[in-house]
């Protein structure tokens, strides 16, 4: 197992523990936002917005490697800001009603792990798409890493916009009391 997989699993585990502590009633609100973000990034990718940004930046004479780095930094910055904002201060909670007991523990762990997967998986996917800028990966990806790539959030569905389906259903459930 290579370092990038270990980092991925570590982030998922950390977020699962965060989910356990905060509770699924809070974590689901973050999940809705993260799923929409993955869908939005997928849409931006499909519509060629990233490529267009690269073309615009080409005017200033940047080489392709620098443009990949810039695009990756842009995606990571946007997603990181979203993650920080959703966890800091007044948060977008799904419900005020905490699930207690064994099911509550399992739910917190599961939703927290899903959030970790959405965050770490999206970063990894775009790092892979842009050829691991800033030497994020030196050497080839391991067999485990290769096996995991098709299961990362932007790649698991034929179209990342599919993530909007569970996010929208959760949003409806949040509004409909």
């Amino acid at each position: 197992m290579g370092p990038i997989e270990i980092l991925f699993y570590t982030i998922v585990v950390i977020f699962a523990v965060i989910g356990l502590v905060r509770g699924a009633h809070r974590e689901l609100g973050n999940s809705i936002i993260f799923m929409y973000m993955v869908a939005l990034f997928g849409l931006a990718s499909q519509q060629g917005w990233f490529r267009r940004a690269v073309e615009v930046a080409s005017i200033f004479g940047s080489n392709p490697a620098q443009l990949d780095e810039a695009t990756f930094i842009l995606i990571v910055t946007i997603f990181t800001i979203v993650v920080v904002v959703t966890y800091q201060g007044v948060t977008f909670d799904f419900s005020a009603k905490r699930i207690t007991g064994f099911f509550g523990v399992l739910a917190g762990l599961a939703v927290g792990a899903l959030n970790g997967y959405l965050i770490a998986g999206t970063f990894w996917h775009y790092a892979n798409v842009f050829g691991y800028p800033f030497n994020l990966l030196t050497g080839p990806l391991t067999a485990t890493g290769q096996a995991l790539l098709p299961f990362l959030p932007p790649a698991i569905f034929p179209n990342p916009v599919y993530w909007a389906v569970p996010a929208t259903l959760l949003m409806i459930l949040r509004i409909w009391r």
């Binding site: 699924a24 419900s95 905490r98 699930i99 949040r174 009391r177």
Partner: peptide, 9 residues
Amino acid sequence: IAWPMRSGV
């Protein structure tokens, strides 16, 4: 997971 929490305002 969300269903039991839907009534929590």
